[in-house]
């Protein structure tokens, strides 16, 4: 499933290029139902929905990935430090984490996006900066149990540096957990980006699936029954999110007993 999503998004736009400047020229060409020429119909501007869909997926995925990268680096990094050093550093970091965990994520993202602009760079940054607390918590608790292991204790008593211990003994052990979490954060980020773009806070130049839905909603496509305009990008989001969360859940299911068993 994930593979199909990726292939469609990567290769699709090459085969069916989308020209954002080509508008429909006649009244007949706008909001057309699916046909042989336009597989998924046309938009209110007479643009091809299917081709827009293929390009939009790239933006959705791009924002999702970069936001996730930020969130994971932040979350895993803070989780590592917090769990490894324990003590006051842990207390302070976890207080901060809890605070961000409590803040309602989507409203915060909306506020930040409204304040700081709508380029896909800002969107990624904003989603990334608000999606890390859960990861930090999960990584921290795993690191806490890892640092009590005899091997780590021994290496430490031999005088190995903290950085070295973290890199050689802790990080490899939490890496699988980070990956499972990555897939889940990613599906959340794609959802957040979609919501943001739908609310008109997406990049107006880079058309994502959320943006397409925003345009569809605001152009009155709904009342004209232009289901293809709504369903195409919508199903795209659902399939992409589902693909990532399925991967995350199955990784989680495989890894969790493994991690538990080691303790």
């Amino acid at each position: 499933m994930l593979a199909i999503v990726l292939v469609v998004i990567m290769i699709g736009p090459i085969i069916f290029p989308f020209d954002s400047q080509s508008f429909g020229t006649s009244a007949a060409s706008i909001l057309q139902a699916p046909s042989r020429a336009h597989w998924m119909g046309t938009t209110e501007l007479g643009q091809d929905v299917f081709r827009q869909f293929l390009v939009g997926g790239r933006i959705s995925l791009y924002v999702g990935l970069s936001a996730t990268l930020i969130a994971i680096v932040l979350g895993a990094g803070l989780g590592l430090i917090s769990g490894y050093y324990a003590g006051w550093r842990d207390t302070v970091l976890m207080r901060i984490t809890d605070f961000f965990l409590v803040l309602p994520t989507l409203p915060l993202i909306i506020v930040l996006a409204a304040l700081f602009g709508q380029s896909i760079f800002v969107t990624s940054l904003v989603i990334g900066l608000t999606s890390w607390p859960q990861t930090a918590r999960i990584i921290r608790s795993q690191v806490l149990s890892l640092r009590e292991r005899p091997l780590v204790q021994r290496v430490r008593s031999l005088g190995a540096g903290d950085l070295r211990i973290m890199r050689k003994h802790i990080l490899p052990n939490v890496a699988p957990l980070i990956f499972a979490n990555l897939a889940l954060v990613l599906s959340g980020a794609v959802l957040a980006q979609a919501a943001l773009a739908f609310l008109g806070l997406g990049d107006p130049v880079q058309v994502s699936w959320g943006t397409t839905l925003h345009n569809a909603f605001n152009s009155g496509a709904m009342s004209q029954g232009a289901w293809w305009y709504v369903m195409t990008p919508g199903v795209g989001i659902v399939v992409m999110v589902l693909a990532f969360s399925l991967v995350g859940h199955s990784l989680d299911r495989v890894l969790n007993p493994l991690l538990r068993g080691e303790e």
Partner: peptide, 23 residues
Amino acid sequence: SLALWSMPDFFTGMILIFICGVW
């Protein structure tokens, strides 16, 4: 549940609008 969970709220809403309102 997983499939529903993967749906953005606004998209679910739009589908319901199609089903219960437009059609």
